[in-house]
Design a protein around this nucleic acid. Sequence first.
DNA 1: GAATTGTGAGCGAGCGTTCGCTATAATTCC
DNA 2: GGAATTATAGCGAACGCTCGCTCACAATTC
Lengths: 232, 232
Amino acid sequence: MDVDTPAFAARHGLTAEAIAARLFAAHGGRIRVKKPKVAVPNLARLLAAALDIAGRKGFHSMSMRDLAEASGLSMGALYTYIQDKDTLLALILDAVTEAVERVLAPYEPGEEDPRRRLAGLIRRHVLLSDAMQPWFAFAYMEVKAFHREARDHTIAQELATEHLFADAIAAGMRAGVYRADDPVMAAALVKPLLQDWYLKRWKHRRRGTTPDAYAATVTAFVERALGVADGA
Amino acid sequence: MDVDTPAFAARHGLTAEAIAARLFAAHGGRIRVKKPKVAVPNLARLLAAALDIAGRKGFHSMSMRDLAEASGLSMGALYTYIQDKDTLLALILDAVTEAVERVLAPYEPGEEDPRRRLAGLIRRHVLLSDAMQPWFAFAYMEVKAFHREARDHTIAQELATEHLFADAIAAGMRAGVYRADDPVMAAALVKPLLQDWYLKRWKHRRRGTTPDAYAATVTAFVERALGVADGA
DNA sequence: GAATTGTGAGCGAGCGTTCGCTATAATTCC
DNA sequence: GGAATTATAGCGAACGCTCGCTCACAATTC
């Protein structure tokens, strides 16, 4: 299971190309370049460059000239893929939202058992946010820059994700395997542990922690905090 | 102990005015306004406005005109307090570093007991980052914008803080009250729980959680994860 | 050869910063 | 004590520059 990490990304279509293809399918109407063969690779390069620059200096400090140069497009070409700088922000946010809903939320086989359910959620969250690390970090760091509507949407999604964890913990409590004063509060403590993986990845990388190892550590940590005895 | 929150800020000099006074004392040489009676209140207003605007739209999106207007200073007056926009960044970062070193690190009486030590660290971190919430959130969110040197400094501080927690956990393990595979990894899991308090305060506020209550919840959560039995 | 895609100089707006100036407070001088 | 002088603080229009974005045109594709 530990060697599954790259396979996870491929299986769920989390490569730059696959993401760009889905975005083109969803937003193609507003992209002036028609042919997918042309549009998708360019869009993928555009997004990769944007995430790279924004990840290093922040979205607002990234000039469209920087972006054009880094993505190998001219200013004019760049603007046939997006309407304006804000569209780019929205596009990235959208890819993250889509990925979370598609990969994280659905039950996987064998997750009727509450402990497997929680462990599965944690593992999927870590592997997903690892495969799309720049995307997740971007969405987290740049929420402020969104318009009110998009910001509310992001907050709603944050709470929805937390709810997935709260539900799993509550199910575990009903089954008598978990103990907690408040499953919602417990879920609120799990979330930042998962976010740390993509926000401070340099730290975990430096210590040689793999995504699977981190998921296992967090799961064990949380389960003990939820009253599961050590060797159980 | 639960009513101590505002007193904590006053006792450690964490009010806007007190922070500005310390910054003026440390950086006074580079501030063209000489008289503390004049400089300190203006500096306090300047910093409060900067934290407010940067907290809402990000440091880079804050124009110096916005800042002048919000702080009630003219453009010219503003620039007698700072050399340039980067100085402002450095000033805020400096205040945070100073506060962490002064308030968090020192032992408090009675903290020879490892469990008290860890609980004390957690509580001080929550109360400190609560009193200076905009400062901490700013330092976290805007690290990217720093020059290499300042960024390295911030990273070093992050690791140093983590070390305080690792030491406390290791002491608890030696005393036989905590169990963990790796105290450093355990500390790395405590840190994001504490950061969540100032990064997502809207969420905790919305749920009516007080700083002291949050500190208590985190302490209990972490202690259970470290193998302390429930009623112990 | 028509449709699609790419080009990059150029536009106006807004940025961070400066500087010549005024207003006010403090000090000096008789 | 009060006039004269100096030091300090505050002001905001203006400067050079970079920003996001456009458009007349060239190149490519089928």
